[in-house]
Amino acid sequence: MSTVTAVDRLLDDGSGHRPRADARRNVERLVVAAREAAAEGGEITAHEIARRAGVGVGTFYRRVGSLEVLLQAVLGEVLDEIVAAADQGLADPDPWTGFCRFAGSYIRLRNELCDINEALGGIIDHERTVLRDRIRLLAERAQAADAMRTDVTWQDVAFLLVSTSTGDHTLGLRAGALQWERNLQIVLDGLRTDHPSTLPGDPPRLPTT
């Protein structure tokens, strides 16, 4: 899958002209700042992104036009990276290794994805189908190789992966270093167990219309 970076999306005015080096550097800084703010759960505003990027608000609007334009470009970049990680997982000769590598990348990138999508008012639609298909293929491939328990559906897997991403505090406890990575490893071990318990209830499903 070919990917287009957020910087290239923002600088493509259809003329084919190369932007000045300083203009490209400023756009690169703004993209990095937007992704950092999203990854940290920080405030996603034009002023905050400009501050993180070390540029003035005037430069922000001159280079990217609006906060919405910047975030849409970044959202596209993050989605492309998630799909690319899934395709790399599917290409791995070891289905379980491929699934695990995708899982780690997905959780890291999903935090950015959700914060940016929320800031845009929730615009992801078609892309959800693409991501669901990749998770289904990865899970089914691992199950076909007897690397993942078969009583778990790919829909379960989607929920399980998301459940590993936690907040900083619970019950007065502070999350440890690499907490979500620890959570993910526990989930992955549970997906491989040779002696699973009977699962209660029904698997997740798409809402009916």
Rank of each mutant, 00 (worst) to 15 (best):
L173K: 15
D22G: 00
T129A: 13
L11V: 03
R128A: 05
L178F: 14
C100V: 11
D94Q: 09
V130Y: 04
V27I: 12
P95F: 01
D156A: 05
L75V: 06
R149V: 12
D87F: 00
A73R: 08
E48F: 02
I49K: 08
R63T: 03
L71A: 08
F99A: 05
G172Y: 01
A53K: 00
P207L: 07
T45S: 15
A142R: 05
A46S: 15
S66Y: 05
G201W: 00
V78M: 05
G190Y: 02
P95R: 06
F60I: 04
D168S: 15
M148P: 04
G201E: 06
V27L: 06
N183S: 12
R18T: 14
D133M: 11
A21F: 08
V152I: 12
E68L: 05
F102H: 08
A91I: 00
D87S: 11
E112Y: 02
E48I: 06
E112H: 04
A39T: 06
D168W: 11
N117D: 15
L191K: 01
V7G: 03
G190V: 11
R192P: 07
L79N: 13
L184R: 07
D125P: 07
F159L: 12
L79G: 09
R63I: 05
D168E: 14
I123L: 13
L113E: 02
A23V: 14
I107E: 01
A139L: 08
P207S: 09
I116F: 08
R110G: 02
L30Q: 03
R35C: 01
L188T: 13
Q185P: 06
G14D: 08
V130R: 11
V74I: 04
T164K: 07
D80I: 08
D92Y: 04
H17L: 09
V69L: 13
R132N: 09
I123D: 00
I135Q: 07
A37D: 04
E127A: 12
R9M: 11
R29W: 10
L30I: 09
A86I: 08
L70I: 10
T208S: 13
G76S: 13
T170N: 10
F102N: 11
T208L: 13
T170Y: 13
F159T: 05
V4L: 12
R108W: 01
R141N: 12
L199F: 00
I186F: 13
E68C: 07
R174E: 15
S66P: 03
R174T: 15
L131M: 14
A139Y: 01
P93Q: 11
R51Q: 00
V64K: 00
